Amino acid sequence: MTRSQRQRILALTPRERLKSRWTALGIDRPHRRVRGPETGMAMVRGRMGATGNAFNLGEMTMTRASVTLEDGPLGHGWVRGRDFHHAELIALIDACAQQDDLRERIDAELIAPLADELATRNAEASRTAAATRVDFFTMVRGE
């Protein structure tokens, strides 16, 4: 799993769910804050019809944090909204996942189950949206 895939899953997982799964792993590495957590704005871009030219849709609030482990790796975390604890927890997991002895365990025991939960939530949201789908068609008059 790539670092960006891991970051995406961590950012989309609710903080309480992420915290409980991380605590269950029992990984406790001493760390210190390097930056933040701090809140700012990020530009959100969109596309017409998902394939057209990109345009600036608007701004959203984001929180970022950076931590370093005592033995070196630097981790970063970003999350939408103002959840300082979520951003810092993501940064800690990111730093730990950069260590060879922890990466496989984090990916197998933390990230993979969270990815499955995310896929299940997305599939259910798609089914709910599909239930409200309306197909429009044009009737041609036979004149």
Results as ranks from 00 to 15, higher is better:
Ala91Ser: 00
Gly46Arg: 13
Glu16Tyr: 12
Ile9Gln: 05
Arg47Lys: 08
Arg141Phe: 07
Gln5His: 08
Ala130Gln: 15
Ala95Thr: 05
Arg21Ser: 10
Pro37Asn: 10
Ser126Cys: 09
Arg8His: 12
Met139Ser: 12
Arg8Gln: 11
Asp135Gly: 10
Ile106Ala: 00
Asp28Glu: 08
Gly142Thr: 15
Met48Ser: 11
Val79Gln: 10
Leu69Lys: 07
Glu70Gln: 14
Ala24Trp: 11
Glu117Met: 06
Val67Trp: 02
Lys19Cys: 04
Gly46Gln: 10
Pro37Glu: 08
Arg105Lys: 03
Arg141Trp: 11
Leu74Cys: 04
Ala123Thr: 04
Trp78Val: 11
Leu10Cys: 00
Thr132Met: 15
Asp101Thr: 15
Pro113His: 06
Arg15Asn: 11
Ile106Met: 01
Met41Leu: 07
Ala54Trp: 13
Ile106Pro: 01
Arg33Pro: 10
Pro37His: 09
Met41Ser: 05
Leu18Arg: 05
Glu143Thr: 11
Glu59Gly: 05
Ile90Arg: 12
Ala119Leu: 02
Pro14Met: 03
Arg35Leu: 04
Phe55His: 07
Leu18Cys: 00
Gly81Ile: 03
Thr39Pro: 04
Pro30His: 06
Val34Tyr: 11
Ala123Gly: 10
Asp28Cys: 01
His76Cys: 03
Gly26Asp: 06
Gly36Ala: 02
Thr120Ser: 05
Arg15Leu: 03
Gln98His: 07
Ile111Ala: 01
Arg80Tyr: 15
Thr138His: 15
Arg33Ile: 09
Ile90Asp: 11
Thr51His: 14
Ile93Gly: 03
Asp107Phe: 04
Arg141Gln: 14
Ser4Met: 02
Arg6Ile: 04
Lys19Asn: 13
Ala119Val: 00
Arg32Val: 00
Glu104Gln: 11
His31Arg: 11
Thr61Gln: 05
Glu38Leu: 04
Asp116Thr: 14
Trp22Phe: 03
Leu74Asn: 07
Ala131Leu: 14
Arg21Ile: 07
Arg17His: 13
Ile9Pro: 01
Asp107Leu: 00
Gly58Trp: 09
Ala119Asn: 06
Met41Arg: 15
Ile27Asn: 02
Arg141Ser: 10
Asp135Pro: 12
Ile27Trp: 00
Ser4Ile: 05
Leu69Thr: 05
Gly40Arg: 12
Lys19Val: 12
Ala24Val: 03
Asp101Asn: 10
His76Gln: 13
Leu57Thr: 09
Gly49Asp: 08
Phe137Met: 06
Pro37Ala: 01
Glu143Lys: 14
Leu10Ala: 00
Leu110Phe: 07
Arg141Pro: 10
Arg8Ile: 02
Arg47Ser: 03
Gln99Met: 07
Ala95Cys: 02
Met60Thr: 10
Ala91Ile: 00
